[in-house]
């Protein structure tokens, strides 16, 4: 906090008020409303609701379909997070090393940051078009008939590939800026100690990047859980059917299409708990244990 402060009373209140009003109406009210309606069973025609206690949660965790979606979301998150971090790290290490064309590479590798997820999904729909999509044709070369929207695994593959494509740039930007902040003296010392480039990477660069990496881990998990909505929705073309979907998509499908407010709210609360847990992990574990600088 600052020492030299202004002592006006009404001005700070007036400055804070707009923000507080907006978050009260559009953050706390809906969040509270979600928690409340997760304990009620809503009449599908909108005639009142009955208190069912933890009923919505119980039926949620007994629902095989929900558990299947949770399972898919878990794998989806793990695969997308791992590959988008790994690819970005390799590219960042190379981009940090080259001298010629460094700026061009940087631009070419980061612009996809600005592409909206549903546009990425749109591109996937074209790429995997049943009759002439370039990637469908590529798989046909190996005698495999790729069917997005029909075959569960094929659709999942298209979603995962697209989600990785969309997320590599963010990770690349952070890894590159992390690499560039490693002091020159440290690099030179490492160069003298260890002649092999891969040895230097694993003993010096990688540990120094760990704080960035852990921060990105949380960012990527959040991305895979929430921000991929646009990709999922476009790849399945708005027709969930038997297609793979993530937990957030399920909230949308049940609540918005199925008009099951109670069940959808219970799912929202489960997701809120998940995000809070992730944030807790981020603050407690990561910030405390990883200190190299």
């Amino acid at each position: 906090m600052k020492r030299a402060l202004f002592s006006n009373i009404w001005l700070p209140v007036a400055l804070l008020l707009p923000q507080l009003v907006i978050i009260a109406v559009f953050f706390y009210w809906p969040a509270g409303y979600a928690v409340q309606s997760s304990f009620y069973l809503q009449d599908p025609f909108g005639f009142g609701s009955t208190f069912v206690g933890a009923g919505n949660y119980q039926s949620l965790f007994r629902n095989n379909e929900y558990l299947k979606i949770a399972n898919f979301t878990l794998w989806f998150t793990v695969i997308v997070t791992f590959f988008s971090l790994a690819i970005a790290l390799i590219l960042a290490v190379k981009a940090d090393r080259v001298i010629r064309g460094a700026k061009t590479y940087r631009t070419l590798l980061m612009w996809v940051y600005a592409v909206a997820p549903p546009v990425a999904g749109f591109i996937a729909v074209i790429m995997f078009n049943q009759s002439w999509g370039p990637l469908t044709e590529f798989f046909a070369l190996f005698g495999y008939r790729f069917q997005v929207g029909v075959n569960f695994n094929d659709t999942a593959f298209a979603m995962i590939l697209t989600s990785i494509w969309k997320q590599v740039p963010v990770n690349f930007i952070f890894f590159l800026s992390g690499l560039q902040s490693i002091p020159r003296s440290v690099r030179e010392a490492a160069l003298i100690d260890n002649r092999s480039a891969s040895g230097r990477f694993w003993t010096v660069t990688f540990p120094l990047l760990a704080p960035t990496g852990f921060f990105l881990l949380i960012i990527n998990i959040t991305y895979a859980l929430f921000d991929t909505f646009g990709i999922v929705d476009t790849v399945v073309k708005g027709e969930p059917g038997n297609n793979p979907m993530t937990l957030v998509y399920k909230v949308y499908v049940d609540g918005f299409r199925g008009n099951d407010l109670g069940g959808s709210s219970a799912q929202s609360v489960v997701l809120m708990a998940l995000v809070l847990a992730l944030t807790f992990v981020q603050f407690r574990l990561v910030e405390r244990r990883i200190h190299y600088t």
């Binding site: 978050i23 409303y33 979600a34 909230v251 949308y252 609540g255 407010l261 929202s268 944030t279």
Partner: peptide
């Protein structure tokens, strides 16, 4: 100030996606 600070910063924790339906109703 501390109360306002926490009231504001709690919003960093929950993305709009998890409270999408109640937000819509409101």
């Amino acid at each position: 100030a501390t109360l306002a600070f926490w009231a504001i910063f709690t919003t960093l924790l929950l993305p709009l996606e998890v409270r999408i339906l109640p937000s819509y109703e409101i």
